[in-house]
Write a protein that binds this DNA or RNA. Structure first.
Length: 343
DNA sequence: CTAGGATCCTGTCAGC
DNA sequence: TGCTGACAGGATCCTA
């Protein structure tokens, strides 16, 4: 779930908590989740936080970096950090020994939770999904991951760019023109457009949510062979990808702030921007037709069947079978990502 | 080379 | 209530 906007939100949020902080202890609860020796990060301070697509990189001041990937169910929760900027208003409550992210927030100590939204944002930690805990001088960082697909991996900082995954990433939508995307699509003419834009080596940053949203924006049926997408459609698709991700970024992606509403009730960050994702059975906000869920590229896929007709102009069409139903901006924010992409 | 499916792992939910 | 199978927002590996 954590896609590019979520990881970028996490990068910014963690920056306020752990930058400049010294690592005291590392607890690995699941061997699979921490790839490499944990000793190499002990005593080091956090120098910089970078993001490459959906991967987060924490650079330390001892020549080591942590490459982090949240995959499907990863989350990062930081709390307990003392801030130089904002002095504490209240004294920490000493009643409960293990406190939650919210407790720290109300004490005005920087706390941050982002990634797969679930009740870990509100619960005591470590919990049964905590895979790695990094203790700093004055706070803790928890890496939670229900399905254990994500990982934390220490590597020499000068080898980050040559890491197999990071080196293979295509440019992000802000760095790619519609024509460039269209040219890349030609190398995967036969595959469904959705499968192709999910491929991080073709375009970087889109996951299942934003792929559906961007295709809806561009009014392209996700199962259409990539080779049938016109240059004009590819240009709209790129614009759509930028817009849906920027909109999510503005709302903070899947963070505690979007999961927990002001009144303390739980929310769903998708409702802040999703037009089709998990809206099956509901009305299309453009035309009023019913959003349906289908299966494309082995993934649950949401479309408006009227806005995104299967009917497209191509001779290849006849060779393809329409997939069956499963069930019923452009303006650039003023910041730069670490690989030089202007968002 | 491409395209599609299985796979890693755990939890939840629908259906019986 | 308990069981079973399908599915979940990612990416890689294997096969044809």
């Amino acid at each position: 779930m954590p896609e590019l906007p979520e990881v970028e939100t996490i990068r910014r949020g963690l920056n306020d908590c752990i930058r400049g902080k010294k690592i005291r202890e590392v607890k690995v609860f699941c061997e699979k989740s921490f790839i490499g020796p944990k000793e190499v990060i002990l005593g080091a301070k956090v120098a910089e936080l970078r993001r490459f697509g959906k991967a987060l990189v924490i650079d330390l001041d001892n020549g080591v970096s942590l490459i982090l990937h949240l995959r499907m169910t990863g989350q990062l929760i930081a709390w307990g950090f003392l801030s130089e900027r904002k002095p504490q208003r209240k004294k920490p409550s000493k009643v409960s020994k293990s406190r939650t992210c919210r407790d720290f927030e109300t004490e005005n100590r920087p706390a941050f939770a982002g990634g797969h939204p679930d009740d870990s944002f509100l619960s005591k930690l470590p919990n049964r999904h905590t895979r790695v805990e990094i203790d700093f001088e004055d706070g803790k960082l928890f890496f939670n991951d229900q399905r254990k697909f994500g990982f934390v991996k220490p590597v020499p900082t000068d080898e980050v760019l040559s890491d197999k995954f990071i080196a293979s990433l295509a440019p992000e939508p802000w760095k790619m023109t519609g024509r460039e995307l269209w040219e890349r699509l030609q190398r995967h003419k036969g595959a469904s457009i959705k499968a192709v834009i999910l491929d991080q080596k073709v375009i970087c940053g889109l996951g299942n949510i934003y792929a559906d949203e961007a295709l809806y924006f561009a009014k392209i049926h996700p199962a259409r062979p990539a080779g049938t997408v016109s240059l004009a459609e590819a240009e709209t698709l790129i614009r759509g990808a930028r817009e849906v991700m920027e909109r999510s970024l503005e709302s903070g992606g899947s963070t505690m702030a979007t999961y927990v509403k002001a009144d303390g009730t739980k929310g769903d960050y998708l409702e802040l921007f999703a037009e089709v994702f998990r809206r099956e059975g509901k009305e299309c906000r453009r035309c009023g037709a019913e959003i349906v869920k289908i299966r494309v590229a082995g993934r649950g896929t949401h479309i408006c069947p009227v806005c995104q007709p299967w009917d497209f102009s191509s001779e290849e069409k006849s060779q393809r079978k329409e997939p069956s139903k499963v069930s019923k901006s452009g303006t650039c924010p003023d910041f730069e990502t670490d690989n030089g992409d202007i968002l």
